[in-house]
Amino acid sequence: MQFIVNIDVKEIGKAISFYESGLGLQLIRRLFGGMVAEMGGGPASIYLIEQPDASVAAPDTSLQRDYKRHWTPVHLDFIVEDIDSAVEQVVSVGAVQEGVIKTFDWGMLATMSDPFGNGFCLLAFAEGGYDHIE
């Protein structure tokens, strides 16, 4: 099975810059008149989709997109080698670090949000990673 990931953003150019400079993804191509950017560099393509603030988020609902920090039950985890450097890099291009970096038996975790309010985590696995979880 293959899958893709879609992330709504308010400004496509700013989003491309953030995901390239902050997380090392690469722009593959622009689609739909430039309003969608296909990003590569990981095991699944990530599509950044420009959607206006306050636009309808789902058909037949009154839900509206909001680019302030928000919670969603689905988020991305980016696996990194050096969590301190990765946090510094993404913060330098607009991410917000939410709390301190936490250490677990399996590795380290930094909870973040991108400039569009989407939450994501940076993970640095210790040797054996999740095999340390009982």
Rank of each mutant, 00 (worst) to 15 (best):
Ile4Tyr: 02
Asp8His: 14
Val9Glu: 00
Val9Phe: 01
Lys10Leu: 14
Glu11Pro: 13
Ile12His: 00
Gly13Met: 12
Gly13Phe: 07
Lys14Thr: 06
Ala15Arg: 00
Ile16Pro: 01
Ser17Pro: 04
Ser17Asn: 12
Ser17Gln: 12
Tyr19Ser: 03
Tyr19Lys: 04
Glu20Gly: 07
Glu20Cys: 13
Ser21Asn: 12
Ser21Phe: 04
Gly22Leu: 11
Gly22Ile: 05
Gly22His: 08
Leu23Trp: 03
Gly24Phe: 05
Leu25Arg: 01
Gln26Cys: 12
Ile28Lys: 09
Arg29Leu: 13
Arg29Cys: 11
Arg30Gln: 13
Leu31Tyr: 00
Phe32His: 05
Phe32Leu: 15
Phe32Met: 13
Gly33Val: 10
Gly34Cys: 11
Gly34Ala: 10
Met35Phe: 09
Val36Gln: 01
Val36Leu: 14
Ala37Pro: 00
Glu38Val: 14
Met39His: 02
Gly40His: 05
Gly40Leu: 08
Gly40Gln: 07
Gly40Tyr: 03
Gly42Ala: 14
Pro43Ile: 12
Ala44Val: 11
Ala44Thr: 06
Ser45Gln: 05
Ile46Asp: 00
Ile46Met: 10
Tyr47Gly: 01
Tyr47His: 07
Leu48Phe: 02
Ile49His: 00
Ile49Gly: 00
Ile49Val: 09
Ile49Tyr: 00
Gln51Tyr: 09
Gln51Ala: 15
Pro52Asn: 04
Ser55Met: 14
Val56Gln: 10
Val56Leu: 14
Ala57Arg: 06
Pro59Phe: 04
Asp60Met: 13
Thr61Gln: 11
Ser62Pro: 09
Ser62Leu: 10
Ser62Gly: 09
Arg65Val: 10
Tyr67Asn: 09
Tyr67Glu: 06
Arg69Met: 13
Arg69Leu: 13
Trp71Ala: 15
His75Gln: 08
Leu76Phe: 04
Leu76Arg: 01
Asp77His: 06
Phe78Cys: 06
Val80Ile: 04
Val80Thr: 01
Val80Met: 04
Glu81Val: 12
Glu81Cys: 14
Asp82Trp: 07
Ile83Lys: 02
Asp84Ser: 10
Asp84Pro: 12
Ser85Val: 03
Ser85Asn: 08
Ala86Gly: 03
Ala86Asn: 02
Glu88Gln: 15
Gln89Ile: 02
Gln89Asn: 11
Val90Lys: 13
Val90Ser: 03
Val91Asn: 06
Val91Gly: 02
Ser92Glu: 07
Val93Asp: 06
Val93Leu: 08
Ala95Ser: 13
Ala95Pro: 00
Ala95Cys: 11
Val96Glu: 13
Val96Lys: 15
Val96Ser: 15
Gln97Glu: 11
Glu98Asp: 11
Glu98Gly: 13
Val100Leu: 14
Ile101Tyr: 03
Lys102Gly: 08
Lys102Tyr: 03
Lys102Thr: 07
Thr103Ala: 13
Thr103Val: 13
Phe104Thr: 10
Asp105Gln: 12
Trp106Gln: 07
Gly107Lys: 15
Gly107Ala: 11
Met108Ala: 10
Met108Tyr: 08
Met108Pro: 03
Leu109Lys: 09
Leu109Pro: 12
Ala110Gln: 07
Thr111Arg: 15
Met112Tyr: 02
Asp114Arg: 06
Asp114Met: 06
Pro115Asn: 10
Pro115Gly: 12
Phe116Tyr: 05
Gly117Leu: 09
Gly117Asp: 12
Asn118Ile: 01
Asn118Trp: 01
